[in-house]
Write a protein that binds this DNA or RNA. Structure first.
Lengths: 148, 148
DNA sequence: TTGTTATTGATAATCATTTTCATTTATAAT
DNA sequence: ATTATAAATGAAAATGATTATCAATAACAA
């Protein structure tokens, strides 16, 4: 419910209806931990909106991604993961992934330097390959504390 | 056949047998384009080694990845892609991916700056989270020439 | 209140990848 | 060279994530 009105408004702007499953999925995404898989989200849904199908979860996530509200990424295991994307650069982060147990850690270190390099690379690449670059990912792979 | 002896030797060192499917898969990987999916590799195999099963392709790729000869990555469509990893830093590269048509472009620009930043970040992250970092990926997502 | 149309949920279908298991084959030992 | 053995293979079935189908439902503009 908190912030619900803003979402509702952003949905309306895009000619999308504001429904219970969508509200609840957004709520789960905003309050629960990051990096949730479709199935995890589906499982978290039962309390607030029982009967919601896994199909709807996938469809909603696809919509949210298309509207730019959610970022989808792959952490190496066979399933996609989803996280709400914040507004400003304070939310900009990347992932540190344990290739053995799948643990994911967000990091925001060196964002300034990163953005500088990324911007430079992005400009050069965009020009060189005539690409319109919309996003980027940086991830580190390795073994976590417990798995090393 | 060219370079086959080196591979054979590297396999032996790891107590792995040197078989026809493995030789042919390595050959395909080394001569064909990068970013091949399992099915593409499988399709390229017929001429040199008909009868090779898709299962064997997957198993071989898994082995090659485990031995560190091949890098597996995900380009956003539902399938994994594989590429031979070269030795030195001259082979170090990353990907520019078109999210609409799936086109993948390698880039090596700004590798020096990148490695510097990456090294710094890596050290800090490794210490901070007690992670043993083994690899990293940087990818840019956007629309290619034809799709924009 | 009503009509239109997007959205939903159950089910089935798809697609990549993995497992199973009997058969074959590389290779070390004889 | 022959043989024994464990690794590797291939066919087929199983799995698991994601997508398509379609009739029923619900949001919301009029």
């Amino acid at each position: 419910m908190p912030g619900g009105h803003q979402w509702r408004h952003r949905f309306r702007e895009n000619a999308c209806r504001w429904t219970m499953p969508r509200e609840v999925i957004l709520d789960v995404l905003s309050r629960a931990s990051r990096h949730m898989s479709a199935k995890e989200i589906y499982a978290s849904l039962y309390a607030a909106c029982p009967g919601t199908g896994l199909t709807t979860v996938y469809r909603t996530l696809e919509l949210l991604q298309r509207l730019g509200f959610v970022r989808k990424f792959d952490a190496g295991d066979g399933q996609s993961r989803y996280e709400l994307r914040g507004e400003g650069t304070q939310d900009h982060h990347h992932h540190l992934i344990c290739t053995r147990c799948g643990k994911i850690i967000d990091f925001r270190d060196f964002i300034e330097e990163e953005l500088e390099l990324v911007k430079k690379t992005e400009d050069a690449l965009a020009k060189k390959h005539n690409f319109q670059i919309l996003d980027h990912n940086i991830e580190f792979l390795g073994l976590c504390d417990k798995c090393r």
